[in-house]
């Protein structure tokens, strides 16, 4: 047992030192790239969840939010205004974590496993204009999903304060 532990530590040190790969996380989903270690927490979602699931249902549940997150990312990575920001982004991971974040803040009972808003956007140089471009892409994705406008705004109400953490000062 002791032998195994020391081997695991050695492997971790090698993995971190040589490849900079993740170790603390659960297994990396097959279509995603490894990430630097961090402590997953729902606090990383940067907003308290809604108390009732009424709005979550207006988004057609987790399946709807998964489609919306995918639609948002697909639009943004080809959007001339902001596509450069996503040049090195792990697209499948971003779609998954965004769907989790939306699901969590709408009270859908999901756990958010992504990183916190400040560190994930650090050094990206995101501007208000970029942030708003993403909001517009999200509005378009929500419209395609058929989410009523009032419910759309209830998700935006949860996301809007994240501007303070996402946009570079």
């Amino acid at each position: 047992m002791r032998h195994l532990t020391s081997r695991a530590v050695l492997a971790a040190v090698l993995a971190l030192g040589v490849a900079g790969a993740a170790f603390a996380q659960d297994a990396v989903p097959p279509d995603e790239k490894p990430v630097d270690p961090y402590v997953p927490s729902n606090a990383n979602a940067a907003a308290a969840p809604r108390a009732d699931a009424r709005v979550f249902e207006a988004f057609h549940g987790k399946a709807g939010l998964t489609r919306i997150a995918a639609g948002l990312v697909d639009r943004s990575i080809v959007d001339p205004r902001i596509k450069d920001i996503f040049a090195t982004t792990d697209v499948p991971r971003l779609k998954r974590t965004l769907a989790e974040q939306f699901c969590f803040v709408l009270g859908g009972g999901c756990d958010y496993t992504g990183r916190d808003m400040a560190s994930v956007h650090k050094d990206m140089g995101v501007t208000d204009k970029d942030f708003n471009a993403l909001v517009e892409n999200l509005q378009a994705a929500m419209a395609v999903e058929g989410v009523p406008f009032f419910a759309q705004n209830q998700l935006l109400a949860k996301l809007a304060p994240m501007q303070r953490k996402v946009v570079a000062r």
Partner: peptide, 9 residues
């Protein structure tokens, strides 16, 4: 303040 972003205040 910010009329748009400050939705948590």
């Amino acid at each position: 303040g910010d009329a748009v972003y400050d939705q948590d205040r």
